[in-house]
Design a binder for these strands. Structure first.
Lengths: 201, 201
DNA sequence: CCTATGTCATGACGAATGTCACGGGCAGGT
DNA sequence: ACCTGCCCGTGACATTCGTCATGACATAGG
């Protein structure tokens, strides 16, 4: 019997996945959470064999939760299941110690199969996504540039951005210019879009 | 016995929802599709009582598919189930003749309940979302402005945008200026963000 | 018929943006 | 000690962007 912790923010999807797994004789959903920051405590309490993590969740992303688990509960296997086939997500998932990376585009039957393989210690990764991750490489941005771009996503003018980052406007523009150059785009708007779709945000 | 057509692009979610509905004794999933442009033909073939539509789908959005169904198969009940609680989505869903509007944030048990109520001829709408739709009102943009904003979402500079729309750069800027004014924002980037989160895209 | 509204266009103005050159400070590695 | 890379800042420059005034044309309504 393989015990499973399910972390997924959308209640309807979570419930549906649970009922899907309930059909399998050898799987048992022992806990469900809706937020990334509830994963660790729930995992401590339920001691599941495998944790299935969505990425986009309130509180804490699935990738961060995966790091928590590796640090605090190294025995548990982690399986990332997400909507978005962002190459950067896959890379970060592997860096965070995940055993597998599955897309919600995959047929429903694959979830149970992936859980079994993860439990057996195998790595489960979508092959097409793996080559995309290799092609796009790692983010070329420095840590600071990353911060700047993240803030730039949700703040209009440069003055706002500079104020939020406690920077001079000139420095802010220099960072943005560097980002734009590295990404080979024309605007900071396009830089944000590219970084988002690559999973570099 | 209520027959259901399930339209949802993510295979895993679709399969999970199907297995969820299979647990209910009075519901039967008679067809599943992954694309919006397959809904109509599948509905003609399967003649379901209720059609459950996701909004974001390739080929044709769930909202467009709902209009098709009302026009071609007026007897079928339509239930929209979506990730995003955009007020504009709700409004457009109602305009398209949908009987219900459900969020994937809602508990899984509500799906079956909503299907039954839709089949019984009732309207199923999230109350909080309804007031939000009333508060935000309809999109203030003209048809042309709407097009401009849609294109602006995925094209960097104004010159690109003008070329794509076969417009003069000056005209393009005027349209954008008008949009920005109506939406009360500062950038076209912010205009895009606001229109997206309101469901006006 | 007149008016309001939307579309398209031009030109001009100020503000915001992206680029570049330059310099100082601070870490890590050779 | 030296070099390299990153961070922070300044100032100047050209381009882009948002705004405004203005005008032409078409359509729909009173």
């Amino acid at each position: 019997m393989i015990s499973v912790l399910l972390a997924e923010d959308q209640a309807m999807v979570r419930g549906a996945l649970a009922s899907l797994l309930a059909l399998e004789g050898d799987l048992e959903v022992v806990a469900e959470v809706a937020r990334g920051d509830e994963v660790l405590t729930a995992a401590r309490a339920a001691e599941p064999d495998v944790v299935v993590l969505d990425i986009e969740m309130p509180g804490r992303s699935g990738l961060e939760a995966a790091e928590d688990l590796r640090r605090e509960l190294p025995g548990t296997r982690v399986l990332i299941v997400t909507t978005f086939g962002r190459p950067g997500y896959l890379r970060r998932a592997i860096d965070a110690g995940a055993c597998g990376f599955l897309l919600k585009d995959a047929p429903a039957s694959e979830l149970a199969a992936a859980i079994r393989r993860a439990h057996a210690g195998e790595q489960v990764v979508d092959p097409g996504l793996a080559v995309a991750a290799l092609r796009d490489g790692v983010s070329p941005l420095t840590a600071r540039e990353h911060e700047v771009l993240v803030s730039a996503r949700e703040s209009g003018t440069i003055a706002d951005l500079a104020a939020r980052l406690h920077l001079s406007p000139g420095t802010t523009r220099n960072h943005l210019s560097s980002i734009i150059g590295k990404l080979g785009v024309a605007n900071r708007a396009e830089a944000v879009r590219m970084a988002e779709e690559r999973g570099w945000l």
